[in-house]
Write a protein that binds this DNA or RNA. Structure first.
Lengths: 141, 141
DNA sequence: CTGATCCTTGCGACTGAGTCTCATTATATT
DNA sequence: AATATAATGAGACTCAGTCGCAAGGATCAG
């Protein structure tokens, strides 16, 4: 049993929700996929594997996974929300190329620290943040 | 003639576009409004003032104003994009309260500087950025 | 075992922000 | 003033995401 299974199971138990085959399939697929994906891509992946699944269930379960802290949701500039799993992927922010659409991950502890200082100064309790820098990537500039 | 009129006029002239009464009304209203607003709010404000205007024209003109650098568009967590005019409003980022929805503006030159350093390091040409910190504001925590 | 309760699913209808089409009208240019 | 080109409004359309609901499980009490 993987770590993410344990976490999801306790999360569900705590809320008196059930671990169904659909939810397990979604969890597994999310953790097998090591890149950004959107909800409908996830539907397609699961359908091509084996199982029938409805879009509604995928959307509902992604919400649960976000609430459980196993998945993060982002808007990378396109219309659709994209998701990625959290375990094994440290927090990061994005440089987004407005020409080719590429999203480059970066992580800067100092920026995070300064963000925390801003919050302290304004008596704001930070929970999450999203920092996106839009521009031109190396190959498009 | 205000500064924003001049800028918008030259922007339009350069692109061989025309300054119509509708565009003027939108520009004026945007610069009279000293808070965030969304496209449909803007439609309502203009309609309650005097003029007939269509949603399509407002959406189209807001895009132009953004391209002209007179207006910025943001997603503050809700479904709708919100806008604000730029002149007289320095760049800032937001703390967004997930309980009451309030958006608190802040500005930290040091964070901006570090962002620039990240971009330099990765050979990325930054054009704009969006930093949003989600959590609980002073009165909701 | 039986029934009551409650959660989940899939389907398709629905929502709502934003975009597009197109016939008509207005602006800028010569 | 004539011409060329752009803009407008109305409503149809798109598309991601949500919702309602009937049917299908689990789970628990007795």
């Amino acid at each position: 049993m993987t770590k993410e299974h344990d976490i999801f199971k306790s999360f569900l138990a705590e809320k008196r929700l059930k671990l169904t085959p659909q939810r397990r399939a979604i969890l597994d697929t999310v953790f097998e996929t090591h890149r950004h994906f959107d909800a409908d891509e996830l539907v397609e992946i699961i359908r091509h594997k084996e199982k029938r699944i409805s879009r509604a269930t995928v959307y509902r379960t992604l919400d649960l996974l976000v609430k459980a802290g196993l998945v993060t949701a982002m808007e990378l500039g396109e219309a659709r929300k994209v998701y990625e799993h959290v375990i094994g992927h440290k927090h990061h922010d994005h440089l987004i190329c407005m020409k080719c659409g590429r999203a480059i991950e970066f992580d800067d502890g100092f920026i995070e620290l300064l963000q925390q200082k801003v919050c302290d100064r304004l008596n704001f309790e930070a929970q999450t943040h999203s920092l996106r820098i839009f521009g031109r990537c190396e190959s498009c500039r």
